[in-house]
């Protein structure tokens, strides 16, 4: 464990304790540490920024109510992922209309070639369009494993499933996405000829 990580965990432990005792500024610091992760995951799951903001708000309010349950600081991030997934699933059941989020990659990684950039952007749009069509469990598995970078075991723990189930969901989801993108690109290239 690196010194920075140890320091971060000590601070995390300190802030959890203080937030548990009713210190709202300590809770705000906990939020600052995890808000990007929560909102980003919610955006990937809901594909809608406004719904994602509502979901993130609900996740952090649930965190405040459940601060007493964290005995180990390492429980916090997986718990937040799990809660984000659950809240987003509930949110999706309530609201069907969606305003697509900006799925563009980080501007720092944009390719300089305009044609290449356009092609990559189109491919990315198609990929996220395919993700939007996935059943919620498969979408959650792909978001956690392939976008958030969790291991299969971590994704399984977050989703409360076995590794085997999550592996199956991921492989099925990837196959669906590949097929969707390939078909759309094939149609587009056929139409342009």
């Amino acid at each position: 464990m690196t010194g920075a990580l140890m320091l971060e965990q000590n601070l995390l432990h300190h802030w959890i304790e203080r937030a548990r005792a009713g210190d709202s500024s300590a809770f705000e610091r906990l939020m600052l540490l995890h808000e990007k992760m929560v909102l980003r995951t919610a955006q990937r799951l809901l594909l809608n920024t406004e719904d994602a903001k509502d979901a993130a708000q609900e996740v952090f309010l649930k965190l405040y109510k459940n601060l007493g349950r964290f005995r180990d600081d390492g429980d916090l991030a997986p718990w937040l992922y799990r809660m984000t997934v659950n809240v987003c699933f509930d949110s999706k059941r309530k609201v069907k209309a969606a305003i697509p989020i900006d799925c563009a990659p980080d501007s720092h990684d944009a390719a300089p070639d305009p044609e290449k950039t356009l092609r990559a952007a189109e491919q990315r749009r198609l990929v996220f369009s395919a993700i939007e069509r996935l059943p919620e469990r498969e979408r959650a598995a792909v978001v956690l494993r392939d976008i958030e970078g969790c291991t299969t075991a971590e994704a399984a723990a977050i989703l409360g499933s076995s590794e085997e189930t999550v592996r199956s969901q991921i492989s099925t989801a990837r196959a669906k996405i590949r097929k969707f993108v390939a078909e759309r690109l094939s149609k587009a290239s056929g139409g342009s000829k």
Partner: peptide, 25 residues
């Protein structure tokens, strides 16, 4: 497909993060 998914997506907008934080507090 993995390359597309693994490309770091744009982080959530700072205004959106601030908005969520304010609403929570």
């Amino acid at each position: 497909l993995q390359q597309v998914l693994a490309t770091p997506a744009a982080e959530p907008d700072a205004k959106d993060l601030q908005n969520v934080r304010r609403r929570v507090m």
